[in-house]
Each structure stands twice: as C-alpha cells, then as structure tokens.
Amino acid sequence: MPETGRKGVNAMTTELKILRRESAQSEAYRQSFIFETEDENAAVSTALTALNARDDLKDKDGKPAKPIRWECSCLQKKCGACAMVINGSPRLACDSKLKELGSVVTVEPLRKFPVVADLIVDRKVMFDSLREMSVWLKSELTPDENTQDIAYEASGCLQCGCCLDVCPNFYAGGKFVGMAGGVPVSRLIEQLPKDEKSEILKEYRKRVYEGCGKSLACRKICPAGLDIEKLLVNSNAASVWKSLFWRKK
C-alpha cells in the first residue's frame, strides 16, 4: 500500500490537552499527551488514533494512561461521529488539521449532551426531537425537479450536533430543537405538496422558528458547510406564508 497522506518537510509536535472522565458519574480531569507527525494532513483524529494504538499509552508526564474513548467512523468528515470541542469550538476531529491548531490543542467533549466517557457524548436528544416532530413522510412523493436543490442541502445534515453546541438558545430537553432539528425538517417543508404541509409547518414554527434568534452562529460552525441560511429562509417563508393565510381565513 502506498504511504497514506502527504508528507510535509517538517516534523510537527502537538500537545493535546484532553478533558477526560471515566464514566458519566466520575470526576472530570485534564490530561496532556504528546503527538509527533510529519503528515501535514494529520488531524486530531489522527493523533487520537495513534495515541490509542500505543501499547503502553503514557501522558505527557510519563504516567500510564488508559486509552482515550472517542467515536469515529468515516475519518473523512462525512458521518459526524467524531464531533468534539477543539480549542473551544465544536468541530469534527477528522476535519481539524493539527497544523492549523497551534502547538497546544485543547480537546473536550461536546457541551450540550450528557458525557458517556472521555470524548463520547450521548446525542440521543437530537434523534428524539426529530421523532417528536414527526419528521417523516406520510405518503409517497412524486419526484419534482424544482425541490431537489433544497432537499439535497437539507439531506446533508450529519446529525453531528456542532450547531447545538454553539447555539445560544438550545439546551437539551427544551422546546427549541436547534438546527440539527431544523435542517432535516426543511426537507419535508420543501418536498411535501402544499396541501400536506400544515402539520410539519406547525411543528417547525413551534420547535424551530419561535426559538431561533437567527444569529446564524450555527451556520459558521456547521462542518458539512450546509447553507443553513438558505434553508431557514425557505422554511420561514413557507411558515410565515401559512400563518398569514390562516389569519386571513
């Protein structure tokens, strides 16, 4: 197999300061690890993988350490598994190149979900919200060329939860579901025939529109690069149009 990654000229040394916790119940603590690489594409995921592959993992002070628990799957920023807070911002570990992060990198679990262990959080609340809002089709659609663009964008959500981490208005258990809920709903708002939209629009207004401050902090952070603004404008238009329509009636 050819070498993976492009090799840069210079070796790079990074200190990863990881916020750790053995289980949901135990105390959190910080532990630092040193990682060296010559691969200029090396990301936080590369470092975590390499550290865990060591037979006897030791921290920066030479103290034996347990493997660092984290989730990953695709390692190419397409599945959302590896979302965590890196240098203070929610990001995908596999999309966070070390050379762009500085020599000391802080790594923490996402902040709005319950921690399972180390960098693993339970993102169940996102999936629950979608179920509560009935995000599904009741009957078959007729494919329509004009709705494909919005549907494509809205189907791209990774359910990573980064947007919820930065959103000033979202907290787990609240009525407002944030963009991890708002984006998938916008597919249905776009694709459903006009006379079948009212229920989903009602959910949208209650659980997305009314809670959203529209600062678009989520858009800047979304690792899938989704055009959240376009989706919001589209869904809001449908939703406002509907409410005016109702008032007139």
Partner: peptide, 8 residues
Amino acid sequence: GLGVPFNM
C-alpha cells in the same frame, strides 16, 4: 418516492 433528490 421517499424523496431522495436524484438528479433530474
């Protein structure tokens, strides 16, 4: 029919 946005 499930809404997969296939190119058209």
